[in-house]
């Protein structure tokens, strides 16, 4: 049977139809000189098709950079607190990449172990992930080295593959995806034959052994040693890697506002900041930058796979691309794999 087709020209209809039903549409868009980001779009002509991965992952859709979780009022009648009630509309993510799609599972595993963070889960439940398999990539991409393929279906509701003619073949992955196709049947058409699909990008394969890295990190003695200080001495302690990373989940809770009305916000935070772990007493468990960098590496290759049973690193390469000092996580991965 021929695959269903989504014509590029039909995206206008799709965006309009999702909007009409009260949903929102997120897609890659060129937002500044040389920068493509996932943003809410109103019209299909805003969609950018020429990108490797957008600057940040679409985790923002489920885990916004800043969001109000509660409001407080303090007036003569007394103090009141009011929690934010979230009723997110359907959000269609168009143009996700398989690495990003896979990362949803990772974030979910953190936000739902034992305590469930509904600010995350409610949004995720309302999300439809439409992934476009990678036909382009760069030297920073390394998904196949962490067990993801550039046309993986895992984590996506629909997987699209670009055709030579610029349209997309459609593979329904989940029930949510199947239901979406039914709802939007006007744009998911069926042809007689499947058009020729473009060649999938083959990222460079690193010489890494995730199991070996995992074993290495299990040995608490390896937390000491010069490796970390030597590899991460150049780290300048900005949070770029963590903010660009699809699986970084750290956040801060902060109150702001005036005297009588204030709000409590959940804001992205970064384990790379020196104040992140600073105690009130002045003691800081991670008082050196290499310790903070070590923590991020530990999080990706020990805590995520060990504790949450999900991928800490999806090989999107963002942290490599954004790093102002080109501190390349893959070099450390290879170093440890060869150790």
């Amino acid at each position: 049977m021929a695959k269903k087709i989504l014509k590029r020209s039909d995206l206008t209809k799709l965006v309009a139809s999702v909007g009409k039903a009260g949903g929102a549409f997120v897609a890659p868009k060129a937002v500044a000189n040389g920068l493509v980001e996932y943003v809410f779009i109103k019209k299909a002509d805003e969609i950018e098709f020429d990108y490797i991965v957008p600057g940040k992952s679409f985790k923002e859709a489920n885990f916004p950079q800043t969001e109000v979780v509660a409001r407080f009022k303090n007036d003569p009648e007394g103090v009141t607190v009011e929690g934010v009630e979230l009723n997110p509309p359907r959000v269609v993510i168009f143009g996700a990449r398989p690495c990003d799609a896979k990362s949803s599972e990772s974030l979910n595993s953190v936000f739902t172990w034992d305590f469930i963070d509904e600010f995350y889960t409610k949004r995720e439940d309302a999300m439809v992930t439409i992934t476009v398999a990678c036909t382009t990539g760069d030297n920073a991409c390394f998904c196949t080295s962490v067990g993801i393929k550039p046309d993986d279906t895992d984590g996506s509701d629909l997987l699209l593959r670009e055709t030579e003619g610029g349209d997309f073949t459609v593979e329904a992955v989940t029930d949510k995806g199947k239901a979406f196709i039914k709802e939007e049947k006007a744009v998911f058409t069926e042809g007689k034959a499947t058009p020729k699909e473009r060649t999938i990008f083959e990222p460079r394969k690193l010489d890494v052994d995730l199991e070996k890295i995992g074993e290495y990190l299990k040995d608490t003695d390896h937390y000491e040693g010069d490796l970390w200080a030597d590899m991460a001495r150049k780290c300048i302690g900005c949070g770029s890697c963590t903010y660009a990373c699809p699986t970084c989940h750290c956040f801060d809770i902060t109150d702001e506002g005036g005297f009588s009305e204030t709000e409590r916000r959940k804001n992205w935070d970064s384990c790379q900041f020196d104040f992140f772990t600073l105690h009130a007493s002045g003691h800081n468990p991670r008082d050196r930058q290499y310790k903070r960098w070590r923590n991020r590496f530990m999080c990706k290759f020990n805590i995520y796979p060990g504790k949450f049973k999900t991928k800490g690193c999806v090989g999107c390469g963002r942290c490599v691309r954004v790093c102002p000092v080109r501190l390349d996580i893959t070099e450390v991965m290879e170093e440890i794999s060869g150790a």
């Binding site: 980001e37 300048i236 949070g239 903010y243 804001n267």
Partner: peptide, 15 residues
Amino acid sequence: GHFSRCIKCYACRQV
């Protein structure tokens, strides 16, 4: 328009 994209990563400061 430009500042709206700031993510408060403080890379500007750190570098």
